[in-house]
């Protein structure tokens, strides 16, 4: 037996919770409780807390059950929407990232062919007039950089709108 238990505590506890203490109990238990510190503590504390419970359960002004039920339905619905939306946002970001990678890969692999085509472009569309004369030697770069920047910008805007929608 541990120092903080009494062999009659379980029996006493059952009688206390069933409401049989103190009237419907054997006399020897009364005698025991009078001389046992553990059991007298148990009787005192259980009696006080049970009385407090009987008093306290009368106090609350409870919200109607229907209001709580509908609030829970709303929260479940919002949670479900969020759950459905999460993979969609993930897929959008993934698609944008993949598009950027593909564009970059194509740009790198085709750089040689495009540089020839791009170098002809300013002459074809008379864009040379727009490029400062000092920079005209790097005209290919002047076309590629804005194109890549525009693609990146569009991707960013797409990702932003995807997150806003979420």
């Amino acid at each position: 037996m541990s120092p903080f238990t009494c062999p009659r505590e379980r029996e006493l506890s059952t009688l206390l919770h069933s409401g049989h203490w103190p009237r419907a109990c054997p006399d020897d238990l009364h005698t025991h409780v009078a001389s046992c510190r553990n059991c007298s503590d148990l009787v005192l504390v259980t009696g006080a807390l049970q009385a407090a419970r009987r008093h306290t359960v009368e106090l609350p002004r409870l919200e109607p059950a229907g209001a709580i039920w509908w609030r829970a339905q709303l929260r479940r619905r919002n949670a479900a929407i969020e759950k459905v939306g999460r993979p969609i946002l993930g897929a959008q970001i993934f698609a944008v990232a993949m598009a950027l990678v593909v564009v970059a890969a194509i740009a790198i692999s085709q750089f040689g062919n495009w540089s020839v085509w791009f170098s002809d472009l300013p002459g074809t569309f008379h864009l040379t007039a727009l490029i400062p004369s000092s920079m005209s030697e790097n005209s290919t770069l002047w076309i590629i950089v804005p194109v890549i920047t525009t693609i990146a910008l569009l991707s960013g805007i797409l990702a932003y709108f995807a997150s806003e929608k979420q």
Binding site: T56, L62, A65, I68, W69
Partner: peptide, 20 residues
């Protein structure tokens, strides 16, 4: 809704007492 209302009626006061 009705099952919940019955469960709520039986349990809410003791839960409130515990929390309070």
């Amino acid at each position: 809704n009705e099952q919940f209302a019955a469960f709520y009626a039986r349990s809410a006061r003791s839960l409130w007492a515990y929390l309070a």
